[in-house]
């Protein structure tokens, strides 16, 4: 009876897990199928074709979009790590006028839904002449409230003796932060880094609004427009090929760092 229950549990779990993986396998297989085969459940294409990928590469500058996405995500993540850890350090370790006000501001602004400031932000970007530039994607994303909170929390837990010893050695606050605290903060850095990177990589709405030129588009934006805007000409294989290319980098990174991903995102959820 017990083993039966156990087996049943595994069967249910496996079935559930399959429903989570099957659509991705279907997507990948559909991207290699000719149009006539797409309406079948089989995961193995009978007539393997790269036509879907061919259509993507000839119709949209997908490699430029890949570069844009990598560039924007990497720079934004680097900025978030540097700036948020600086603010986190100041809030956790330094005494200065307005410190509590700033911490309250950080907590408060986290509650503001992004949709509220969407239009003024768009107008601002337009007025600054940043539409269709990387600046529009990077600069507003250079700071992360969640990052600040995570860093502040972690830095508060580090022993004061570390700081005292460093000060005796004549270290500045910048040196304490980047040379002593950073190497000790790998989990926090990874957490903030991964969440920022994924968030930036997957963002669709903001690029959709501030980027109009094909040359400047990010991957998710371009892939969305490719399949919504009718450029794919209702070719499902091409849509699936584009979607597969968009998913692939994240899936590969995910396979390598699965545990980091899950733990850091869960942590950010609990913190945020």
């Amino acid at each position: 009876m017990r083993t039966f229950k156990k087996i049943l549990g595994y069967v249910i779990l496996t079935a559930a897990a399959l429903t989570f993986i099957y659509p991705f396998l279907w997507m990948i297989s559909a991207s290699f199928k000719p149009e006539s085969e797409i309406g079948s459940l089989s995961l193995i294409p009978k007539n393997f074709t790269l036509a879907g990928y061919g259509a993507v590469f000839t119709q949209i500058p997908i490699l430029k979009a890949l570069f844009n996405s990598v560039f924007v995500s990497v720079i934004s993540t680097a900025c978030v790590l540097i700036f948020s850890s600086m603010v986190g350090y100041a809030l956790a370790r330094l005494r200065f006028i307005g410190r509590d006000t700033i911490f309250n501001l950080v907590l408060l602004t986290m509650m503001i839904p992004g949709q509220l400031t969407l239009i003024p932000m768009y107008v601002l970007i337009v007025k600054l002449g940043w539409a269709d530039t990387y600046k529009a994607l990077i600069v507003p994303a250079m700071m992360s409230n969640m990052g600040i909170i995570i860093f502040r929390q972690f830095f508060m837990s580090l022993p004061q003796e570390l700081v005292d010893a460093a000060r005796i050695d004549g270290c500045s606050d910048y040196e304490i932060l980047f040379k002593i605290f950073w190497p000790l903060s790998k989990p926090s850095l990874v957490t903030v880094g991964i969440t920022t990177f994924i968030g930036s990589w997957n963002e669709v709405l903001w690029p959709l609004i501030v980027i109009r030129k094909w040359d400047m588009m990010t991957m998710p934006q371009m892939v969305t427009l490719f399949s919504v805007g009718g450029l794919a000409g209702a070719q499902v294989a091409a849509e699936m090929a584009a979607a597969t290319m968009l998913a692939l980098p994240v899936v590969i990174a995910y396979l390598f760092f699965q545990n980091y991903f899950i733990e850091s995102l869960a942590l950010s959820g609990i913190k945020g």
Partner: peptide, 8 residues
């Protein structure tokens, strides 16, 4: 030449 983005 810069083709118009085929957005909506």
């Amino acid at each position: 030449m810069e083709p118009l983005p085929a957005s909506r």
